[in-house]
């Protein structure tokens, strides 16, 4: 089972738009809430009201500051959860077979009842996408909401990951990245979606859309200044105004 199924035809995953993510953490909490109540053991919290609170989260939003060689620094909010890699090292290292990648859609899951909590899969993941739950001692990770996306107890429109459903700015997209005609694949093609740490050879399914270019510096053209003045002062303006008004419909005075 820790053998990878080989390239799956269907590659369900997320596309995250770094141009749009405002860093609100909504996806972080809706993920925590859904996955605490659903798939497997709850995501526990240690010292939740104490000096050093910490807990299990399957999705976390970082932020980075990027300083271009020229111009102002930019800030990029950066959500990160499991990328459901095609060559998932977290799966092959697992000694128990608890970690596996689904044949039918490529989702990488942990079968908690087989997990011994050795942590090796988390070591193998370059992205920090797996967290060992401190209370239950089993490995937790993004399930791509496998218990939502096919769930017949949910209305059809809700069969998408909790984080995608909740994202206020629409920065998260869910779909089949194995299908070149899917909306997500088109988005990736249009916007130049990229992989995180491609050199790690994990072949992530999730893609990131880069921030659009920012802070276009104004270029002044001496011959055609931004706005041609029509007057220099109030008086001149009134003169212009009278002319302009008479040009408006019904304006002959």
């Amino acid at each position: 089972m820790t053998q990878l199924p080989g390239p799956t035809a269907k590659k369900l995953g997320l596309v995250i738009d770094l141009d749009t993510c405002v860093g609100c953490h909504a996806c972080v909490i809706s993920c925590k809430a859904w996955n605490t109540e659903n798939y497997g053991v709850p995501l526990s919290d240690q010292e939740p009201y104490g000096a050093d609170p910490s807990g299990t989260f399957l999705n976390r939003v970082h932020s980075y500051e990027v300083q271009p060689a020229q111009g102002t620094a930019q800030l990029v909010h950066f959500p990160k959860s499991c990328l459901h890699c095609e060559d998932a090292p977290c799966v092959t290292v697992c000694p128990t077979g608890a970690s596996y990648k689904r044949v039918e859609d490529g989702i990488v899951l942990v079968n908690e009842s087989d997990c011994i909590g050795c942590g090796l899969c988390a070591w193998a993941c370059p992205y920090g996408a797996r967290e060992l739950d401190a209370k239950e001692g089993v490995m937790k990770k993004c399930t791509l909401c496998v218990d939502r996306i096919y769930n017949e107890n949910l209305p059809e429109e809700d069969r998408e990951p909790a984080c995608v459903r909740t994202c206020p700015s629409g920065a998260r997209h869910f779909g089949d990245l194995g299908d070149a005609d899917s909306d997500v694949s088109k988005l990736v093609a249009e916007r130049g979606g990229f992989d995180l740490m491609p050199e790690q050879g994990t072949k992530p399914v999730n893609k990131y859309l880069p921030p659009r270019p920012k802070d276009a510096e104004p270029q002044i053209d001496i011959l055609a200044p931004f706005l041609e003045p029509i007057a220099q002062d109030g008086k001149g303006f009134v003169g212009w105004l009278d002319k302009a008004l008479s040009a408006l419909p019904g304006g002959a005075k």
């Binding site: 909504a26 972080v28 909790a162 459903r165 909740t166």
Partner: peptide
């Protein structure tokens, strides 16, 4: 209370919910 999500029909949020809203529980 088991889980809180946004109401898709609602005029304000049309289904989305912020971090605070999801943490209402």
């Amino acid at each position: 209370v088991a889980y809180i999500e946004g109401n898709k029909d609602h005029p304000v949020n049309k289904g989305v919910l912020c971090a605070k809203g999801s943490a209402g529980i």
